[in-house]
Design a binder for these strands. Structure first.
Lengths: 235, 235
DNA sequence: ACGGATTTGTGCGTATGTATG
DNA sequence: GCATACATACGCACAAATCCG
């Protein structure tokens, strides 16, 4: 700890305590004065450390109120190629997911249309929650043509990502063909799953992913916790 | 100027002078003490402004040496999927381009070979300069099979990127199949276009892009201003 | 090669402004 | 209105890296 600047050591200590979950997301940190006393340094030195953490997106400060644990990830890139795991790992977090439904059923009208299927065709449906460092980031529902991906549901139980399950089904690459983004208020069930209050802002994206031959492989709806995610639209 | 923090006003003033090209890339800014005297503020206030500029990637400071104008963009990702606009926008800059040539002609031997065409086949050729925030980043020459992309030149006049022009021609996705990188010295014409001195280092990349069916759609040469770009090879 | 001057980095102390609760 | 807490700004001092004669 001796080598390097004092502020860097303090920032590292605080970052460790944040990663450890000592302070829950949204919690208020001790005041700058208290932190200065704790580490035995001037308040400016604490501020330098906090500025570093703020630049990394770990904390957010509000004048007159305090310094709070940021709800990460701050940014979620939405481009032609979106991989949840890449977004999360790029933010230095650990991605995980919980599956809440796996089923094969008849496609709804808009699902069949989005996937270019005949009305009444069968589809595989997977629903679940995506988490970063254990905190819910988004709910998702993905719909796949059942005729092409017969073993997909089994694969999804085995591997940790949709990308890998599709790869096992022979789709080694896919791109986002279209995306629509709307803002909604959280319904009770959504608020429960995403650990939000009812009525909290939700970002809803609707996307169609296609393979290299432009054939639709997935029709996906995702509901992001608006307070924890900023969608970044690239191109 | 009165509203807002002093450091923010100073940062804005300096950012404007940088954007104006008052200091060339790589040049040394006045010392913190000099800037403090110029703006009539404490050195800490100048440091706050410089820290802000550094966070935005506009300047780089070296202890004992000084503060220097950053040569942006620092990184230019070269992967299987390269889109100039994505690289530039990811760096927080505004992409643009100037077309210097649009023509249809007989393919040269190496061009036909790269695109898998018969010798003597016709190709569409577009040449131009890519800029980020108005500063030249690279010269490019792209060659396309004329038989497949008859309306491409017209599309290129309409849309701001090659990716979009190809999309209009039915290629909604393409990947970089091969890339070769060499280093050259700027020739007089290149130095003029890229606003470099003659003999300045140039990074020359030669790439073949293919569509989802592995059919070549573009043979491209790009000459990057070596002093302003670092190519990052990924995958 | 060396040493002093220069320049940025770090840290403390103090004072005042401004938003919050 | 009042106390609290972060934001800004000034001043001083020394350390560390670089530069130059």
């Amino acid at each position: 700890m001796a080598r390097g600047a004092i502020w860097a050591a303090i920032a590292g200590t605080l970052a460790g305590e944040l990663a450890q979950g000592l302070y829950p997301a949204g919690a208020k940190l001790p005041t700058e004065a208290e932190l200065a006393a704790r580490f035995g340094v001037n308040r400016h030195t604490v501020r330098h450390a906090l500025a570093d953490l703020a630049a990394k997106g770990l904390v957010v400060s509000r004048r007159g109120a305090g310094v709070f644990v940021a709800s990460r990830p701050t940014d979620y890139a939405i481009g032609r190629r979106v991989r949840f795991n890449e977004n999360v790992t790029a933010a230095g977090q650990v991605p995980s997911r919980e599956l809440t439904r796996l089923e094969t059923r008849v496609a709804a009208g808009h699902e069949a249309a989005a996937l270019g299927l005949e009305p009444g065709a069968l589809v595989q449906v997977v629903e679940g929650v995506s988490l970063a460092d254990g905190q819910p980031i988004a709910m998702f529902r993905s719909v796949f043509p059942a005729a092409r991906f017969s073993g997909l549901l089994d694969a999804l139980r085995e591997v940790p990502s949709i990308t890998m399950a599709l790869a096992a089904a022979g789709v080694d690459d896919y791109v986002r063909a279209s995306t629509r983004v709307t803002a909604k208020a959280a319904k009770p069930v959504q608020a429960l799953r995403l650990r939000l209050r009812e009525g909290a802002p939700i970002l809803r994206t609707e996307a169609v992913n296609v393979d290299g031959a432009a054939v639709p492989v997935e029709y996906g709806l995702t509901w992001f916790a608006g307070e924890r995610v900023t969608l970044t639209l690239s191109v």
